[in-house]
């Protein structure tokens, strides 16, 4: 803490919090992309991003963090949208008369690849889980930061 402003975190934390967000999103994307052959999944990616967002809340306080990143005001929408996306990917096979969580292209069929990223329905499922985790944790952070009483000052 700097002696002049005892209520605000150090400038280093604020700068790091802002700079860390971009790389974290890249790491999250990598976690989702390699999740099918190696360690990683939408849940882990979501937690990683939420950690970076938590640091932003710590560094800037609730109101400033949400002013800097307006997406943080849409936590509930992210969570519900993610859950619905995941449920839709899980249960759409019912419409085709297949058991739930069957995926397309089916095992053994040709999969379109972009680099190492395989384009198939489990990818959508993981993105849904990612959004759900990020959304729920943003809602929690928002409420925790709101109790602070000092934010925005």
């Amino acid at each position: 803490m700097s002696s002049g402003e005892p209520d605000r975190p150090d400038v280093i934390i604020r700068v790091i919090a802002r700079m860390l967000l971009g790389p974290t999103l890249m790491v999250a994307a990598a976690l989702v992309a390699k999740g099918y052959a190696e360690v990683g999944d939408g849940f882990g990616a979501g937690v990683a991003v939420a950690l970076a967002i938590a640091l932003t809340y710590v560094a800037l306080g609730g109101a400033r963090a949400e002013a800097a990143l307006p997406v943080l005001r849409h936590g509930p929408k992210l969570a519900v949208g993610g859950l619905l996306l995941a449920l839709a990917t899980g249960f759409f096979p019912l419409l085709l008369g297949e058991p739930p969580v069957s995926h397309r292209p089916a095992p053994g069929e040709h999969v379109v690849k972009v680099g190492t990223l395989e384009l198939f329905t489990p990818l959508v499922f993981d993105i849904g889980v990612f959004l759900l985790v990020v959304g729920v944790l943003i809602v929690l952070l928002h409420h925790l930061a709101g109790r602070d009483g000092r934010d925005g000052s």
Binding site: E98, P99, P100, V101, S102, H103
Partner: peptide, 11 residues
């Protein structure tokens, strides 16, 4: 119902 149409034990 075995999810994903996998063989039982996997799904």
């Amino acid at each position: 119902v075995v999810t994903g149409g996998w063989p039982p034990g996997v799904g």
